[in-house]
Design a protein around this nucleic acid. Sequence first.
DNA 1: TGTACATCAGTGAACGCGCGTTCACTGATGTAC
DNA 2: TGTACATCAGTGAACGCGCGTTCACTGATGTAC
Lengths: 192, 192
Amino acid sequence: MKVTKAQAQANRARIVETASVLFRERGYDGVGVADLMAAAGFTHGGFYKHFRSKADLMAEAAACGLSQTLANNAGLDLAEFVSLYLSREHRDARSLGCTMAALGGDAARQPEEIKTTFANGIENALAALEREGTALDHVDQHRVREKMINLLAQTVGAIVLSRACPDDSSLADEILEACRTGMLASLLPTTP
Amino acid sequence: MKVTKAQAQANRARIVETASVLFRERGYDGVGVADLMAAAGFTHGGFYKHFRSKADLMAEAAACGLSQTLANNAGLDLAEFVSLYLSREHRDARSLGCTMAALGGDAARQPEEIKTTFANGIENALAALEREGTALDHVDQHRVREKMINLLAQTVGAIVLSRACPDDSSLADEILEACRTGMLASLLPTTP
DNA sequence: TGTACATCAGTGAACGCGCGTTCACTGATGTAC
DNA sequence: TGTACATCAGTGAACGCGCGTTCACTGATGTAC
């Protein structure tokens, strides 16, 4: 049952994408190689024709998820980004949402290779945010990067905390609302 | 080898405390019942004399860790809290640091019981922060809770992101610094 | 262009291992008299 | 207060199970002639 080179490459990419989704949904330890391969439409044995180990795939899936997160939010201005990111829809769609929020906590316990991947993902996210922040002329241009780090930390933290609450929890919604309100206000010119 | 009632109760408490530390260090899936009991100074068989299941212990350990976090930061004003929370020392001491930051991401994938425990922990943290925020008379008193949610989300998010970076990463330190600076500034009376 | 053969992506059984959990047992504690 | 017995926290071997990984095999693909 060999397959064309192009097909094999496409299959490999499908495994990585499937993994990036399943890991966000269930965590690195919550997805087995067999689960993963079945979800991608294969049997588990073929896994090692594509990857040296599960850890190797984890690193690739993290890179895939992080760049997908970046692409999902491309072209948004800061207010649009904050509104979408801090929506109930994003919070409830862990498997398709931000990889930093879904797996950032797990990354801390993973090998250096995965942490490096996350650091690159954070840098890329900051670069995109800084581009938008620079466009706001009422923001102190010497502090754009600092402000964008504040913004990223608060949005990621808000999603993490909101998801840690029970599904029907009013606190979960309040966290999103408070951070949305607070951050949108901080993006406006100061009106004393 | 029976043991006095008081001793048994103390042993049980030691298991819960040990668990709350190990879980923060390695995550819920990274600590086995046998590991845990050995770390607490017992053999694994006795575990089920104290707990119905590992999941039961996880909920108790979460409550223990969350209230320990609260106690650790009791009596600090907001500026002191921010400075300590966003220190490298706290970031690097996962096993003794904030449970929300260490396990908040994992809580999202845990049963409702654990999420309820986390929601209570978040509420308690907010209550403590609100008490301090109310003391600052330059803060709009109608928005104290909102501001404290912003503060908690940003501090937790900063630790999560900083820990996701490689150990020697300058980005990891930059995140802490930027959030410390930004938040301490936001706690001062506005000077336009 | 057609034929013969090597390659290798994908299959599915099997591997050792560590997990959560159970269980028969031990022996000091706590209790009944 | 002293003796006999039931209790039960803690022990350590054993359980089934699912994990990551390996392997012999299959058969279409890709290549050499």
